[in-house]
Nucleic acid binder design. Structure first.
Lengths: 114, 114
DNA sequence: AAAAAATGCAACCAATGGGTTGCGTCATTC
DNA sequence: GAATGACGCAACCCATTGGTTGCATTTTTT
């Protein structure tokens, strides 16, 4: 991948929904629970928050569409697990942004010094 | 700061609006523009997107409240600049999450091996 | 086979978000 | 000093979001 393509509009459209999924306190809480508390069911998860089970289900679906969690039926219950891959994408995106910023600063510095 | 406090609910409430501000393609685009294109005015910025100037103003205010951009009046125009500090916060938050995940994996591994 | 547990599904509701248009204000420039 | 340019403010609109309640469905469990 070329440096110039690092922050293309295509990547913006990819990164935005990912950050949007992270942009809710309850969903971040769910991620932390699944992260450190291991795979869990909806009913157990909803016990840790003061919203209904159905609300938690919706949040988990949002996280799922963003690729941050995964679920699997197991008998009568559905087990949700954290999915670290997309987190790395978000991480890389922030990295590229701050790198772009550093490059700009260097350009400015070079310009001032000449 | 203790490790146990690294992902406290207080931090969730702090991180959520930050990610929410990043969770929109137009706003990410604005950040990229301000990042690599240097400080700009609203009208110049809105020329780069196919939404109205007023819409861009709203987006910039969201970014501003999240601490991702800063503005200063200069004569009849207002100059917007990128603010890298809060980006570092977001970065650190993701870092803590994935570290929490690694710790959990290690715990699991230790448990399986005994 | 009946009760209980875990989830799915749908309707509904209030608030927020992203967008618009219209107009007023203030600094510049001619 | 009058036109222009950049911006602020407010009202309004529609779609989305986060939440609820109620009830149906599917596995367990007893």
């Amino acid at each position: 991948m070329s440096r110039a393509e690092a922050l293309s509009p295509a990547r913006l459209k990819d990164a935005a929904p990912l950050f949007a999924a992270l942009g809710d306190a309850t969903r971040l809480g769910l991620l932390v629970s699944l992260c450190s508390g291991g795979p869990l069911t909806v009913t157990r998860l909803s016990g840790q928050f003061d919203v209904s089970r159905q609300a938690i289900t919706k949040h988990l679906e949002v996280l799922s569409e963003a690729g941050l969690v995964k679920s699997a039926r197991h008998g009568r219950e559905r087990i949700w697990t954290f999915e670290p891959k997309r987190l790395e994408d978000a991480h890389q995106y922030l990295e590229r942004l701050s790198r772009e910023w550093d490059v700009a600063l260097d350009r400015l510095k070079a310009f001032v010094e000449t």
